[in-house]
């Protein structure tokens, strides 16, 4: 009898757990679904009722907002800018970080460990502390408002994490492999390109994914260092938020377009993303 009661109790609590998790999952999904459905409705429908009305009136769904959004030059330009900022930054961080990570892992020079500790110390420096001086510096050398400035700033602040992650990973590469290559007459650059980079693949992938998403999603850095010609999609949309309410037909599809690439990257490279996030936690 008590065995049945215990079973019943565990079944009930198991059911409670299930119900709880389903409610939580709904809470997590609904906001995004709301954005998606809002982006697929006519401005007049948006003004008249909530997005959930679509569920009973699927005929309201239309892609016209996306059509007009993607024929808007400012939006298209800013999407191109996002790519022009994100891709070079990711490559630069990976390459420069790998070079330095290799030097810290396998080269001998005075004060190596102290230098590396200094880099680790920079891991947590908030970008806010650098905004004002770098804005002035970029102004002086004439790249304020350029994509170049945005890329350089992101790269610099991506480096401590990159160096930290890659140095630790490269240091695990078996010494014999490097020595064998060295005996074959490979110089440092050959070692780097033929042994270190290929073997460092997993760490480099994690770093690359992580850095890509980070820069793609940035708003603050571009808000300060980019101008209207070089602004990425986040900054372009940010200006629209000031008139929130009357322009959901622009904001909702705009936000969704800006999310598509990160979501694709996220779903395609979950494992790398998670290990990147876990390796050093997040900025």
């Amino acid at each position: 009898m008590s065995a049945i009661a215990a079973k019943l109790a565990s079944w009930v609590s198991g059911g409670a757990v299930r119900v709880f998790l389903i409610v939580v999952a709904l809470f997590w999904l609904l906001p995004t679904i709301g954005l998606l459905l809002s982006s697929l409705r006519d401005p007049t429908d948006i003004a008249a009722s909530g997005w959930w009305k679509v569920l009973s009136a699927p005929s309201q769904l239309t892609v016209s907002n996306y059509k007009s959004l993607l024929s808007n030059d400012t939006v298209v330009n800013s999407l191109v800018n996002t790519i022009l900022i994100t891709v070079p930054t990711t490559l630069l961080v990976v390459v420069i970080g790998s070079l330095a990570g290799y030097a810290f892992a396998w080269m001998d020079f005075r004060g190596r460990d102290w230098w590396f500790l200094a880099v680790v110390g920079l891991l947590v420096v908030p970008i806010q502390v650098a905004l004002i001086p770098v804005a002035q510096l970029f102004g002086k050398i004439g790249i304020f408002g350029d994509i170049t400035g945005v890329v350089l700033f992101h790269t610099a602040f991506g480096l401590p994490f990159a160096i930290f992650l890659l140095r630790n990973f490269f240091a695990e590469i078996p010494r014999e492999l490097l020595e064998a290559a060295r005996l074959d007459g490979a110089g440092e650059l050959r070692l780097f390109t033929t042994v270190i980079m290929p073997l460092g693949g997993p760490a480099i992938a994690s770093l690359g994914i992580f850095q890509f998403l980070w820069v793609w999603n940035d708003m603050l850095v571009a808000l300060i260092f980019a101008d209207s010609d070089s602004q990425p999609i986040t900054v372009a949309l940010q200006q629209q938020v000031r008139q929130f309410g009357s322009n959901i037909d622009i904001l909702a599809p705009g936000a969704f377009v800006s999310m598509v690439i990160p979501l694709v990257v996220f779903f395609a490279f979950q494992r790398q993303f998670v290990s990147g996030v876990m390796a050093g936690a997040v900025k």
Binding site: P160, F161, F164, V274
Partner: peptide, 17 residues
């Protein structure tokens, strides 16, 4: 952006050499 506390041993960053 500044990374943060490093989770030792997790993921790619293996045990320190």
């Amino acid at each position: 952006m500044a990374s943060t506390v490093t989770t030792g041993g997790a993921a790619a960053a293996g045990p320190p050499p």
